[in-house]
Design a protein around this nucleic acid. Structure first.
Length: 280
DNA sequence: ATGACAATTCCAAATTGA
């Protein structure tokens, strides 16, 4: 099974390009972020014509996440348990949730398409929200894996954190001043590893960015960020056989500012007729 | 250089993004 994640920066603006990529690269499951629409506005027909089912979560023109799959989609969840919301001037438990997480089980793999809050600025209330959101995601992961240590769990999407210095090639993003590279954000991302997840792409694709700002010729200069990840539980990581970052998707007409991140999985076939052969 | 991108929406100035 081939699984990809892509912050598409509006699915309505880029549906043709998105479906063409999925078909060309033989993607079985495509997790999308920043669809920027409500479910009733999602361009389902283009995906269905290419053989994909889609589940989408969107509340307004901001954020929004979706999962497209060639194989049946089961057990869809909107927002993970414990996910905080945001309300200006208030970060308590009753703040309204945003459309930043959708989970589904496909081929026995629990996939979450995730869009971590931006943070906006180091001293902005949205940064507190971002850190709380990542912390809640780590605790959700711990709970899930404690209940089922063999779960094939994949947290994929736009984490809005560049974990390593080498993940930041944008000269305008500077530690101490900018979001995405602060010690607090990196610690919050690192807590996902402590909760039992690993970045399954990094060992196979050690260098490369997944995002380049539209401004200031960032892509031609290759001054990007690595902020989109596929994190997996140990059972998921054990199934990974390959990975790539589809850098070419930043080229051409009206590209998203992010590109897809892709992994190949060797999943054990679930087949009751599969009787082991014994020799001797 | 009063800029330099791109998406959304009460169609157009404001908001968001990273």
């Amino acid at each position: 099974m081939r699984l990809a994640t892509w912050n598409v920066n509006s699915i309505r603006a880029r549906v043709v390009r998105t479906v063409e990529f999925a078909v060309r690269e033989n993607i079985d499951v495509l997790a999308m972020q920043e669809i920027k629409c409500k479910p009733e506005q999602f361009p389902y027909a283009e995906f269905e014509a290419a053989g994909y089912h889609v589940v989408a979560h969107g509340l307004n023109q901001w954020n929004g996440v979706a999962i497209a799959s060639r194989e049946p989609i089961e057990d869809v969840e909107l927002s993970f348990a414990g996910m905080p919301g945001f309300q200006k001037g208030y970060d308590g438990p009753d703040a309204p949730l945003e459309a930043r997480a959708i989970g589904a089980t496909i081929n026995g793999v629990r996939v979450w398409s995730l869009y971590t809050p931006n943070g906006r600025a180091l001293d902005d209330p949205h940064m507190t929200y971002k850190l709380h959101w990542l912390d809640a995601l780590a605790r959700y992961t711990e709970t899930e894996l404690a209940a089922n240590p063999e779960l094939k769990l994949a947290l994929v999407g736009d984490f809005n954190v560049a974990p390593l210095d080498e993940d930041n090639g944008d000269p305008t993003i500077v530690e101490g001043v900018s979001t995405h590279v602060s010690p607090a954000e990196r610690a919050a991302f690192g807590a996902l590893q402590s909760a039992g997840l690993t970045d399954v792409v990094r060992p196979l694709v050690p260098t490369g960015y997944t995002y380049w700002d539209y401004k200031q010729l960032r892509f031609p200069r290759n001054e990007g960020l690595r902020i989109d990840f596929i994190l997996g539980s140990s059972a998921f990581a054990d199934a990974v056989s390959g990975a790539f970052i589809a850098r070419d998707e930043r080229k051409g007409e009206i590209p998203s500012d992010h590109v897809p991140v892709v992994v190949d999985l060797d999943l054990d076939p679930v087949d009751d007729d599969d009787v082991p052969m014994i020799f001797g």
